[in-house]
Design a protein around this nucleic acid. Sequence first.
DNA 1: GCTTGACCTCAACTTAGCTTGAGGTTGCAG
DNA 2: CTGCAACCTCAAGCTAAGTTGAGGTCAAGC
Lengths: 155, 155
Amino acid sequence: MAGQTSVKTLRKTDLIPIGEMARRTGLSVSAIRFYEERGLVEPIRTSGNQRRFLRSDIRRLSFILIAQQLGLALGEIEHQLAKLPMGRTPNARDWNAISKSIRAELDAKIAQLERTRDTLDGCIGCGCLSLKKCELYNRGDHLAAKGPGPRQVLG
Amino acid sequence: MAGQTSVKTLRKTDLIPIGEMARRTGLSVSAIRFYEERGLVEPIRTSGNQRRFLRSDIRRLSFILIAQQLGLALGEIEHQLAKLPMGRTPNARDWNAISKSIRAELDAKIAQLERTRDTLDGCIGCGCLSLKKCELYNRGDHLAAKGPGPRQVLG
DNA sequence: GCTTGACCTCAACTTAGCTTGAGGTTGCAG
DNA sequence: CTGCAACCTCAAGCTAAGTTGAGGTCAAGC
């Protein structure tokens, strides 16, 4: 039972209005509302329909900010946040698991870029003039088959 | 005079309609039209107002595809392409110069991601629980001062 | 008890990088 | 010389990640 943020144990200092959340997280009010719409936070409402956030939401929102700086899309962030408990304040282990899986994604992105760079190095050698041989170019060829143009920003 | 793609030296096999360009580059017809609008290619027109591309435009458009896979925005690509001669078929040296400058950008992106990863490693250590100390979080703090929310995707 | 700042919703706008559709023309093959 | 695929333009739509504004409500201090 202990540790559960039940309605009974809420003190008013624990219920944070959106403006203060904005100040405390560095997000804009409109962004926070937008994140709620996306389902990334679920503030409760006062009788007058105003949002009230829990303390644990500060970390939740801060995480969004951090993850974006890491280059994650909101969709991915949503996916990560889904791993956190909604009712209870996330603990070290919760965050740790997330950090690790993000680290893995970062590693993958770096690896991808490095592969790309190495391929480009090959192209510098050939002056990018032998398109038939150029790996980068031929990657494009595959895409040609795979329908609708350049919507991708790195594989 | 030689090497100039003057109207006089054009054979009809050198004038490629947009559909064939699409097939040969892997881009969609609409994307190619869009790139023209953006000023990335300048096809000539038939008397009936249809686009006809030069052979050298194949490479030009392919380059756009490649550069996008490298993560360059169209604006940057435009900037790079501006270095190429419009009248003449670009040679090895032209492409080489571009490749090198792209390689530099790639290196910078990789370095940035690596820095980010290292910072995240620090956070894994702390479980991302000590927000006051967390570098990633505090990067966010600076942003708070700098107005409008997360529009940035990596610095 | 009223004023005022903080809050509410909803709709429209932004940038990037295109796609899709409507409605109309061109050009080549037969 | 006709048929029809390929071309044309222009306008509107899409996704991401929000911002901006209009018009209205809430709550807290005096």
